[in-house]
Design a protein around this nucleic acid. Structure first.
Length: 176
DNA sequence: AAGCCCATCCGAA
DNA sequence: TTCGGATGGGCTT
């Protein structure tokens, strides 16, 4: 039998309400592969389809523990954060992106780094913009905390799900 | 292989 | 404050 993209394993998804809006969590047997934020279900679902155009998507009815763990992280529930951060992840990405994302996961809550500092961390001090691109390519909100990267001048810079959400996350993490 | 985009940064005007 | 140049990964032609 010929292999086609549709032979890839099904992606399961659920949507939950969080303070920042609606949060879609998608996962495979390997782990969580997307955490998307948006104003309504249609928006986050559209983003999921766009990010995984050739995967079969399946809505799951029964509450999944990974989803509630992500919700807890999104709500900043201190007690459950360690649990959320230890969820298995099924991230795609190039070798470079994975290096950047791994560095992001080392930034503790309440701290921020600049794009240039992050470039230093991964041993590519001149690849500042490339590092920013890798941050922008992250689809695992909070699990890969790209919201903790700011500009050198302190301004928050961009965020896939809106600068307002980035600032809200940073503000909450700052007071803890 | 070439060109374009980009969530950067810095120095100069 | 705006502007241009350096910079490098990813994606499309």
């Amino acid at each position: 039998m010929a292999r086609s993209p549709l032979d890839q394993p099904v992606l399961h998804w659920q949507i939950g309400a969080v303070g920042l809006g609606r949060a879609l969590v998608a996962w495979s047997a390997q782990g969580v592969c997307a955490v998307l934020l948006g104003d309504d279900d249609a928006a986050v679902l559209a983003e999921l389809r766009q990010g995984f155009p050739d995967r079969v998507l399946q809505h799951d009815e029964t509450p999944h523990p990974w989803v509630s763990a992500v919700q807890a992280e999104l709500e900043g529930m201190r007690a459950k954060q360690a649990h959320a951060m230890s969820l298995p992840l099924d991230m795609g990405g190039t070798a470079f992106q994975q290096t950047v994302w791994a560095a992001l996961r080392q930034i503790p809550s309440g701290q921020t780094v600049t794009y240039s500092e992050l470039a230093q961390q991964v041993g590519r001090p001149r690849a500042v913009r490339a590092v920013a691109s890798a941050c922008a390519a992250n689809v695992l909100a909070v699990l890969i905390p790209c919201h903790r990267v700011v500009r050198r001048d302190g301004s928050p810079s961009g965020y896939r799900w809106g600068p307002a959400r980035k600032q809200a996350l940073l503000a909450r993490e700052a007071r803890s």
